[in-house]
Design a protein around this nucleic acid. Structure first.
Lengths: 117, 117
DNA sequence: AAGTTATATAACTTAATGGTTATATTTATG
DNA sequence: CATAAATATAACCATTAAGTTATATAACTT
């Protein structure tokens, strides 16, 4: 399980569109810093900083290939975030109000097959 | 689907431990600002600001009950984040390296029931 | 109407973010 | 060995974030 600080880091890393785009790109395979920087109207140091944020959050790892630093996606923290968010599934699946949910609970105690659409 | 800006807002909102704690609390039912502020060693205005962030991210809604502003969890954006993160499930489920995954793909083309533990 | 309670707003401070340009570092290559 | 390529680091700037205290607003209560 992720510590609160690790959750902070992961969510913070994901809160930036450039960083999400980088992660999306890495789904298709490893990439060097320049390859990652290429599609963005942004300097190389800016991308390097984003990569540090992603690395600190554990969302990427970086190898060494001569002068290149190939970046690799590490989706492990995503699994943990996913687990955390799952705790809210019940809430988003019922587009009912909390009161309706309560009534739903009562019905469950006296089953009546009244499952809404 | 959430726009990039909405994703930013949602992830940013979730990147703070106080705000995550507030959401966790709201899973058990609606609560007023003071009720939410109570467990924290933090001023009421600080909590009010956190609530604004959560509201802007669409993660809570606020009603009116006399002088109280009851807050309610709205997990809808969680569903969207969940959907986004699902796009990485394949990556976190294989704790293999990308190369191994590629080999795995090849095996699938010539099935051999070589599913690792 | 006066007081009290619940919440919001204002003004401010400090620190973190996200970007820049310029330069340093590291490693490969002619 | 000198140069080029890939990346990192430094120094800086502007904006946003997270907290504070003090005060305003709104709605009940007596």
């Amino acid at each position: 399980m992720l510590s609160a600080a690790q959750m902070d880091a992961a969510f913070t890393a994901l809160a930036d569109p450039t960083r999400r785009a980088i992660l999306t790109r890495l789904k298709t395979g490893d990439a060097t810093v320049n390859e990652l920087a290429d599609p963005f109207a942004m300097s190389q140091p800016a991308i390097s900083k984003h990569l540090i944020v992603l690395e600190r959050a554990g969302l990427i790892t970086r190898g060494r290939d001569g002068t290149r630093r190939p970046c690799r996606l590490n989706a492990q923290p995503m699994a943990e975030i996913n687990a955390w968010i799952e705790g809210y599934r019940a809430h988003w699946e019922q587009r009912f109000s909390r009161l309706d949910a309560l009534l739903e609970d009562l019905k469950t105690e006296t089953p009546k097959t009244t499952k809404g659409e």
